[in-house]
């Protein structure tokens, strides 16, 4: 058994992120924990989900054994349609992304640097099959990029770093990071603590962050 994990669960990280997404946003959710964000949209808000393989108005997964293998999301899982959904081809889908028409994108990360650099597509390990998908297009074109990730890897290595050692996905693109321990902004070239998860203190997070971490700015 490793050290008992403190802080937010995956679901709570997703819920905390969902809280920050404005009503009416067009949103692209990456694969993994970001997908959970759709389950925690606060009541009274409507978001429209974009999936880059060619659908706006993506709904939840169908019941087990149902659905259409030709109605899938970017993770190649079966999905459903919400009222008002639209299909389009790949070049149009990425025109929405690159052209700045998608408001928010939530992605996973291998590393995030204090200047907002993101590495999330390759560890550069020998023998790895390099696969980039749409991540570089998303970070180049979507106005607000959020990251949801565990604060450290399973062996305790910090994922929030001074500068990324893995190959980059984009330069200076990440605005806010939601981890199991904290909400952290990448702003002005530094990590700025925004919120601590319950029961976690500043030093605990700082020790697990491989770059300077500015304390929470107290409001008046």
């Amino acid at each position: 058994m490793s050290e008992q994990r403190q802080g937010w669960t995956r679901e709570q990280m997703a819920e905390r992120c969902a809280f920050d997404i404005p009503n009416g946003s067009y949103v692209n959710l990456g694969i993994g924990i970001p997908e959970l964000v759709a389950d925690y949209v606060p009541e009274g808000r409507e978001l429209i989900y974009h999936t880059e393989n060619g659908l706006l108005g993506m709904g939840p997964s169908p019941a087990e054994g149902e659905g259409d293998p030709e109605l899938i999301n970017a993770g190649k899982k079966k999905v459903t349609l919400n009222p008002g959904a639209a299909f389009f081809h790949h070049a149009d889908s990425f025109a929405m992304i690159r052209g700045g028409h998608i408001d928010v994108c939530v992605l996973g990360a291998l590393q995030v640097a204090q200047n907002g650099d993101l590495a999330n597509w390759s560890t550069g390990a020998p023998g790895a099959i390099p696969s980039v998908g749409g991540a570089m297009d998303l970070v180049a074109g979507v106005r607000t990029i959020y990251v949801i990730t565990q604060h450290t890897t399973k062996d305790g290595t910090p994922k929030l770093v001074e500068s990324c050692t893995f190959p980059l996905t984009g330069v200076g693109v990440v605005k806010r990071i939601y981890t199991d321990l904290a909400v952290v902004d990448a702003v002005g070239g530094h990590f700025q603590l925004v919120e601590l998860s319950p029961g976690v203190d500043f030093d605990y997070v700082r020790e697990r962050t491989a770059a300077p971490l500015l304390p929470i700015v107290q409001g008046d």
Binding site: A91, S93, F94, A95, I97, G127, P130, S131, V132, G133
Partner: peptide
């Protein structure tokens, strides 16, 4: 790919779609 029997040109998805368009 690992045994060198096939070449790969890796292209970001949106760039690939737009290059084709």
């Amino acid at each position: 790919y690992r045994s060198g029997q096939i070449e790969l040109e890796l292209v970001p998805q949106g760039t690939l779609a737009e290059r084709i368009r």
